[in-house]
Design a protein around this nucleic acid. Structure first.
Lengths: 144, 144
DNA sequence: CGTGTTGGTCAGCCTCTCTGACGGATCGGG
DNA sequence: CCCGATCCGTCAGAGAGGCTGACCAACACG
C-alpha cells in the first residue's frame, strides 16, 4: 500500500469526492437539472456578475464552451445575462434566484464535507491544509 | 484577495496546474497522441496490469468508457491487452514499451513541478501537505 | 447442475470541448 | 477624429468522452 502517489493524483481524489458529494446531494434537493461541467462554470460567477470571457478563462475552457454552458444554465433558471453597461461588446452573467438557492444548498453540503475532513485530520492540520493550498494558488492559479 | 474558497476548488486548482503541465511537456517530448481522459485511465494501470473494470472504477467512469479509452491507448501503442490467465472473462491491460517511456518522461515533469511547489512552501509544509492528502484518502478514496 | 454475480461488449444517445471564421464594439496612437 | 489592433461574443462543424440499457460469457456456489 504505502506507495508514493504523485501529488496531482493525491489532490484529485478528495476533489472528486467533494464534487460528487455536492452534486449528489444537490440533485437530491431538487437541483438535478445541471451537469458537473455547468457547475464548474457557475461556481466561478462573481457576486456582482462576470463576463463570459472571464468565466471561460477561469474555468479553463474556450469562450464558445462557456457560452454553451451558460446558455444551459440560463435555460434552467440558474443565471440570467444582461448587457454590460460598461462595455457594449460584453454580456454580464448574473446569478438568478434559483441559482442563489442552489448556492445556499451547496454551501451546506460543502461545510458538512469540510467538517468530516476536519474530524478526520484534526482542526489544526485541516487549517494548515487550507493554508498550504491557498499559498499554492500563487504559483498555480493564473488568474488572481 | 482573502476570500474563503471552498476546499474543493482549492484542491482543484493545483491539480489542474499539474495536469496541464505534465500534458504540455509530454506533448513537447513527442507523446502528443493521447488525451487527458486517456491519461487519467493510463495513470491507474498497476505495474503488473489491471483489469478493465478496475480501471473504470478507479477512474470513476463506466467500463464502457474505459474500454473506449483503452482501445485508443492500445492503438497508439501505450498499452496492450492480454486475456487474464486467472479469469476467462477478464482482459488485463498492460503498459507497453511506448507507455513505459511516457511514464518515465512524466515522472520527470511531476518531480519538477513538485520541486517548484516545495520551493514555494518549504520542505516541511510540502511534506505535511502530502501527509494530509494521503490521510484524506482514507475517507475520500473508495478503492483502498 | 441452476441461480446469481461479475467482466466485458454492442448500440445508441447526449454533453462537452475544440478549431476556424466572423461581425461588432472598444481602445490607442497618430 | 480616425484607423488599425484588439477584445467580446457568435455561428458552424466536428470529434471525444461519458452515460444507459441490453446482452453474452465465464465464474461461484448452493
Amino acid at each position: 500500500m504505502a506507495e508514493e502517489l504523485n501529488t496531482g493524483l493525491l489532490l484529485f481524489l478528495p476533489y472528486r469526492a467533494m464534487e460528487t458529494r455536492v452534486f449528489d446531494e444537490l440533485a437530491a434537493a431538487g437541483f438535478d437539472d445541471f451537469t458537473p461541467a455547468q457547475a464548474r462554470v457557475f461556481q466561478r460567477i462573481a457576486p456582482h456578475g462576470s463576463r463570459l470571457t472571464d468565466l471561460a478563462r477561469q474555468a479553463g475552457i474556450t469562450k464558445q464552451s462557456a457560452a454553451f454552458l451558460v446558455e444551459k444554465l440560463e435555460r434552467a433558471g440558474y443565471v440570467h445575462t444582461v448587457p454590460d453597461p460598461d462595455d457594449g461588446r460584453a454580456r454580464l452573467v448574473l446569478i438568478a434566484e434559483r441559482g442563489r438557492r442552489s448556492v445556499e444548498a451547496s454551501r451546506t453540503v460543502v461545510a458538512q464535507v469540510e467538517a468530516e475532513w476536519e474530524a478526520h485530520l484534526g482542526a489544526e492540520r485541516m487549517a494548515e491544509l487550507r493554508r498550504a493550498l491557498t499559498d499554492l494558488r500563487e504559483i498555480t492559479d493564473p488568474w488572481r
